[in-house]
Design a binder for these strands. Structure first.
Lengths: 198, 198
DNA sequence: ATTATTCCTGAATGATTGTTTAGTTATATA
DNA sequence: TATATAACTAAACAATCATTCAGGAATAAT
């Protein structure tokens, strides 16, 4: 019936994620986008809407395709506490490669005061992360790896702060501080384990 | 010899801090600045240089006049561990009022990848914070409040991550998560104390 | 009072911003 | 093959961007 697009909207959206992630919203111009995405301005508007729409699409794509997969090992099956330690080790190593930090964190700091949609995306990611943490801790409690009176929600909140702090220091290239922190977080997680009777 | 300025450059700089802190660099236009500072465009340029110069002046003014005073109780005299707990309590409460988060953290996430001066300002603040933490821990060690084999630098790095994480969640209005984290940080600090013999 | 210096005002600069329009090209169906 | 539909291209839009200019006003020293 009609002409086909000469580009894959999904592939181009990934490029938009990369650019907004690296440069932020205000500092990414439409010229930047047109150049980096490799499509025409009009195609951009007709496919994704205006700049803010494309940004929000990118942000949510990031959550679904970058953040969520990293949480999988926490969310599936009946993980033990070591899954948590692995997750933090994974994250601290990730900071060396992902020099742009966390897209969602960048977005919250830049726009959450003025854009409700950004604020909502942030809340969505935090819920997903907390679910992952809670799932591990619940599983650990059921297997008597941690004490039955531990406050799972509270610990998860604490761990969420760790993730956010690590990503900030990663972006600031404070790698030593970051790794020292991860080491102590590991100690903390260990300290949750019930002592075996000898 | 010449005409006097009819504004106080220091007072106006404080206004610039407020605006850049709240809106970020890219999203603050010169029109915004002229309006909010209450001085003419030309006066702005002749007094502070261009937009980026004013931003950097604002950022460093913030460090010296907002961050440093908050660290005083950690840096003076021979503080005990309770000074650390007070500091974190103070910070968690601050998030309800300072809805713009930490100006330096905002700056790092927005500009550290492209602006060396911003990166340096970040490093300067982190050094100041770490000095404060180390000073408290060293004092606590000398008073045998904590064990002599505790790694003071490592603990300070861990605490720096806490501050960064708290400020992110504060800006995201995740107050419950933030306060739960502060509670566990308090437990952690307590756990450093050497047990009294009974 | 005169002069030299600096500041203030308001307009204008050219460049860049996000967005849209008009005209052309390609494709799927009839 | 003809037609309807939608995507393509390139140019243009008004608005806003950061920065600067020219001319008048105020101040301190002579």
């Amino acid at each position: 019936m009609s002409r086909k697009k000469n580009f894959d909207p999904n592939q181009v959206l990934i490029r938009a994620v990369e650019l907004f992630w690296k440069k932020g919203y205000a500092n990414t111009s439409l010229n930047d986008l047109v150049e980096y995405l490799g499509i025409n301005r009009f195609s951009l508007y007709s496919t994704y809407g205006d700049k803010k729409s494309l940004y929000l699409l990118s942000l949510n794509y990031y959550i679904d395709n970058y953040s969520v997969p990293a949480l999988e090992s926490l969310s599936l099956g009946e993980p033990s506490l070591s899954a948590l330690e692995d997750y933090f080790d994974y994250f601290s190593k990730l900071q060396y490669k992902q020099t742009s930090g966390c897209f969602v964190q960048n977005a919250i700091l830049e726009l959450s005061l003025t854009d409700e949609q950004v604020s909502l995306a942030g809340k969505r990611l935090y819920s997903l992360i907390l679910s992952g943490f809670c799932h591990v801790l619940k599983s650990a409690k059921e297997h008597h790896e941690i004490a039955s009176d531990e406050d799972i929600e509270k610990i998860s909140h604490f761990l969420l702060v760790q993730i956010q702090g690590i990503r900030v220091l990663g972006k600031a290239k404070q790698y030593k501080a970051m790794e020292d922190a991860v080491s102590i977080i590991g100690q903390y997680i260990d300290s949750l384990k019930v002592k075996e009777r000898s």
